[in-house]
Design a protein around this nucleic acid. Structure first.
Length: 706
DNA sequence: TGATTTGACTCAGAAAACTAGCT
DNA sequence: CAGCTAGTTTTCTGAGTCAAATC
């Protein structure tokens, strides 16, 4: 579908929260009749108008009849406000792509278009509550300005971001202010022209008050509210698929707000408008009752019965204009099946991997530039677990993957070291220096020759071509299978590298996490440093220091005690003085006092101890020191690594389950409840399970980094 | 294009760590 | 002085969220 130029959107539509200004479906025609599927073709609001060939596939599949009825009604509305350039560009693009799709991927589609369910029942989606105006003014040049509800809501979105890094970004502020002004009535729009003159602090105060009120709520009251909320939403949390009761993952419609985005996103700060029932398409069984629309005077955008997909509802994201879907949870049958297929495919790859590696190694020698590029790209994908790197649009952050690498991202260092430095998915930095095959190095040097920094390294390679090629090597193979394969292969190998991974559960878990960490590093799964990380490390070091000093003092005292007639001796210990915190001060105040206290000098304490106590103290302190040292080490090395992503997406759970069985580690120590449910299908695996290992010895991805 | 998977970040609540008071 | 308990604070975990990839 087209994306409207924001300037073309009437402001009432941009926001559309309060009832009056929303364009809505006037009536919903229910066709049907004798044995016919009941199909609704809703009249769309202008912003959602679809010409027939723009209808989502979902609306067209297997429904000759539907075409008929929409034609009969002649209700295909043209775009009321034809959004120019963008609309046309996107249409042309779509035609091109649609043709291509038809030509190239019939097989893929045939597989994709299998029937996924026979009966499907659910209760629709849960909308966020209506906006409730608070009446706090905006200050403009110091003057109070009462905003109408739509504008107030947007101003409040902004106020909630005060003090975050978003506001330091020019793009964010500009996008916000442009959209904000569109919500203002004409007179105010004339007056409010500079963001720098806007003061949102009164609104912020209101938000802080709300927060404070919420936080000071007694736990009992909190619990009560939580339970009431659970009851309110219970209706939406389950669906019935082919008679099975399944959990719905994201039954909540995304609330309006400011679009944040990741990295340097050109649309950050834009207002993400509210979604209404008219925007939403529900997918239901033909016999399933249609859930009543929760808003009076509104109705669902459309109802479809598409058995070839697994989503329950969809709408278009107002920012990207892409579809958002409501899915079943990860523990559902659908998801479990595709998860199993995914790991099945990865195991398949291990049977072909030798052949494939030989293939692309041979390809490096080819005289054909295209084959060379394809081979080098595949080498990097396989060896470094890079993502394939599709093309990106102008309205997205500038991030890259393998095929979209530019000259500026690669530095070559004789004789054979390649340095990669680029922003990947989610604008996460990928930085790695690796030793590569001589020929790969040579080819890369050729690819870079004579190009500008902003040129593509793989200028003669398209992602589709690479994937088509992979399909020819093994059915269903695509670039991401290499990530799954290499991640699982690595974990399996590491977990089998040691017979007895530790005397107790604690050390075995440490061992597992270490292996998990290697995979996470391979996949470049990062997390941001927790705010207090350095402070925490400092405290740990301080404690370590203190314990070491205490140990020395104890040892010295032991000698003295042994020599003394009464077997006693003085032990000196340095500690920070205990602070008194007044009972009736606020949380913030307490925190401040605590922080103050940490700066105070340590005080000397002298205790008279018996020999037995001293000896015990020594053992305890030594143990404590060991613990602190280990802690310090793991925390530091795990600080910026995220283990969960690979656990959830890349590691065949059977590897973990088998390891747990072999080493008597309860599975819940590694898989939290949700993951246990997601991976239920893997729990029965035998303890001898191996993730198939290829007979190729070279190219071990876990050893790729230098 | 549309469907589906992957990914980092947030925040609430749980768990761990710490402290004071008592025996 | 050690050990226990209860209360408090700090840290960690993980479920939820929604953006951003793939194919």
């Amino acid at each position: 579908m087209h994306q409207q130029d924001p300037d073309e959107i009437p402001l009432s539509e941009l926001l559309g929260n309060s009832g009056e200004s929303v364009p809505r479906v006037v009536s919903v025609a229910r066709q049907g009749g004798f044995g016919a599927p009941s199909i609704q073709v809703a009249k769309k609001s202008s912003s959602a108008a679809l010409s027939e060939d723009e209808l989502p596939l979902a609306l067209l599949i297997g429904t000759e009849r539907k075409k008929e009825c929409s034609r009969r009604k002649g209700k295909v509305e043209p775009c009321r406000k034809a959004p120019k350039r963008k609309c046309e560009r996107m249409k042309a693009e779509k035609h091109r792509k649609a043709k291509k799709l038809q030509a190239t991927s019939t097989k893929h589609r045939a597989e994709d278009e299998s029937i996924k369910w026979c009966s499907l029942e659910h209760n629709g989606v849960l909308f966020p509550p209506e906006y409730e105006p608070h009446g706090r003014p905006l200050l403009y040049d110091g003057c109070e300005i009462a905003l109408p509800p739509e504008a107030e809501e947007v101003a409040t979105f902004y106020a909630s971001k005060l003090g975050t890094v978003y506001l330091e970004k020019e793009t964010f502020r500009k996008n916000f202010f442009d959209d904000f002004r569109k919500t203002l009535p004409v007179d105010l729009r004339k007056r409010i022209v500079k963001l720098e003159h806007c003061d949102f602090s009164r609104i912020r105060e209101y938000l802080d008050e709300l927060k404070e009120r919420k936080q000071s709520m007694p736990p009992s009251k909190r619990k009560e509210l939580r339970e009431a909320e659970a009851q309110r939403v219970a209706h939406y949390t389950v669906a019935i698929v082919d008679g099975r009761k399944e959990k719905v993952a994201n039954y909540r419609v995304e609330p309006p707000g400011l679009f944040l985005g990741r990295g340097d996103h050109p649309l950050m700060g834009r207002v993400k408008r509210r979604i209404f029932p008219e925007d939403v398409t529900l997918n239901l069984g033909r016999d399933a009752p249609i859930p009543p629309c929760p808003f009076k005077g509104h109705d669902w955008g459309s109802i479809v019965h598409n058995q070839r997909v697994t989503w329950l509802a969809c709408w278009r994201d107002p920012i990207s204009d892409e579809y958002k879907y409501v899915w079943l949870s990860a523990s559902s049958h659908f998801k479990a099946m595709s998860d199993q297929e995914k790991f099945e495919k990865a195991q398949q790859l291990s049977k072909h991997i030798t052949k494939i590696r030989n293939e692309y190694t041979k390809g490096l020698e080819s005289a054909d530039r295209h084959t060379q590029q394809r081979s080098v790209a595949l080498y990097l994908i396989d060896k470094l677990a890079l993502r394939v790197g599709n093309e990106k649009g102008e309205d997205e952050a500038d991030t890259v993957g393998c095929c979209s690498l530019r000259v500026e991202h690669i530095t070559l260092q004789e004789p054979n070291i390649v340095q990669l430095d680029f922003l990947g998915k989610d604008s996460m930095r990928y930085f790695n220096r690796v030793r590569v095959e001589a020929l790969v190095f040579h080819r890369l040097r050729e690819f870079l020759k004579g190009k500008r920094v902003s040129d593509n390294v793989f200028d003669e390679l398209k992602v589709e071509e690479l994937n088509d090629y992979l399909k020819s090597l093994m059915p269903g193979l695509s670039a991401k299978v290499f990530r799954t394969y290499n991640a699982s292969y690595t974990l399996d190998k590491l977990l089998h590298s040691v017979k007895t991974p530790g005397p107790d559960i604690h050390s075995r878990l440490l061992f597992y996490n270490e292996a998990n960490k290697d995979v996470a590093v391979l996949c470049n799964h990062q997390r941001s440093l927790p705010k207090t990380h350095s402070l925490m490390l400092e405290r740990l070091r301080d404690k370590l220091e203190e314990s070491r000093a205490y140990l020395e003092a104890l040892k010295m005292a032991r000698g003295k005690a042994q020599a003394s007639p009464d077997s006693r001796a003085q032990v000196t210990r340095w500690r920070r003085p205990v602070v008194e915190i007044p009972e009736d001060c606020s949380l913030a105040e307490r925190k401040r006092i605590r922080e103050e206290a940490e700066k105070r000098p340590k005080e000397k304490q002298v205790v008279n101890m018996g020999l037995a106590s001293i000896t015990r103290g020594i053992a305890q302190t030594q143990e404590k020191i060991r613990r602190l040292e280990a802690d310090l080490k793991t925390r530091d090395s795990l600080a910026t690594v995220s283990l969960s992503t690979s656990k959830i997406n890349y590691l065949d759970p059977r590897i973990t389950v088998a390891w747990c069985k072999r080493h008597e580690v309860p599975i819940e120590r590694i898989f939290p409840r949700a993951l246990q449910e997601k991976f239920m299908w893997s729990m029965g695996v035998s303890e001898d399970f191996r993730f198939p290992i290829s007979n190729v010895v070279s190219n071990d991805p876990s050893g790729a980094s230098t």
